[in-house]
Amino acid sequence: MATDSLSNVAASTANISLGEHAATRTSALGEVAIKTEDVGVFYNEKSQALRNVSLTFHRGEVAALIGPSGCGKSTFLRCLNLMNLEIPHCRIVGSIHYHGSDIVNDKINMFDLRKSIGMVFQQPNPFRKSIYDNVALAISRHGMASSKADLDERVERALRAAVLWDEVKDDLNKSAYALSGGQQQRLCIARTLALDPDVLLMDEPCSALDPIATRAIEDTARSIADSGISVIIVTHNMQQAARVSDTTSFFYLGEMVETGPTERIFSNPSDDRLKGYISGQFG
């Protein structure tokens, strides 16, 4: 039953035309997008990689997940679109509430879910196709475009939303591999935005990029959040978290230690481990 309501919601999201969707986005600012309760991850029966994470993410906000390497922040992120289930023997426990249903169950339609919860990876990973096809592929596979003109329009809109359109509009048929690293990463963002998601997960999206490209991605993340999407960004760069996010959550050794408004987390951390991390004692 829960599954049904989710896939209905996902399907109706897909059918909303641009105008309406934009309207819902603005009105949806601040609404809860996704909420986790006691989420844990087992990579096998013995080792628990993540335990008891309870967090709430709002639309229109950028949330940063920080912490040293191996602390479980990426593992947590990959729970939100169930990408962890692609790993053999990986098990997710707890509950993740999204559009009124708990997505941690066997009957969930992962394909609809991942359409509305987009993900951008650490290394830019465009397909070995043209720039146009990179964005168009998933749109047409999900049957979202009613015509060729509609498809063209959706591709353009996605590239604009990822602030890439002006740089690539003249050579959409060029290979995506001809783009720079930062452009490739924005192409990957465009590719997910093309599916009209309401949550965008970013897994250390700038770790392979230079400072200028990093800045461009950060600005893009901000503008995407401003359009009403909940952006969740994993980073090990505290300056980045401070620059771009509204809320910050600190992970350490598979636990979520502290969460709060970014300003408060950095100016007045309460947990000793967080204090140590911020002052550069480890990590």
């Binding site: 679109n81 990408m83 692609e86 992962m110 394909f111 609809d112 879910l113 991942r114 359409k115 987009g118 993900m119 990876f121 290394q123 990973n125 465009p126 397909f127 070995r128 592929l137 998933a138 596979r141 999900h142 990957c188 590719r191 997910t192 599916l195």
Partner: peptide
């Protein structure tokens, strides 16, 4: 074929 190509496809909700 690099793993990240698979991840990219699956993360876009493709089967």
């Amino acid at each position: 074929v690099p793993r990240d190509q698979r991840d990219a496809g699956l993360a876009l909700g493709l089967t």
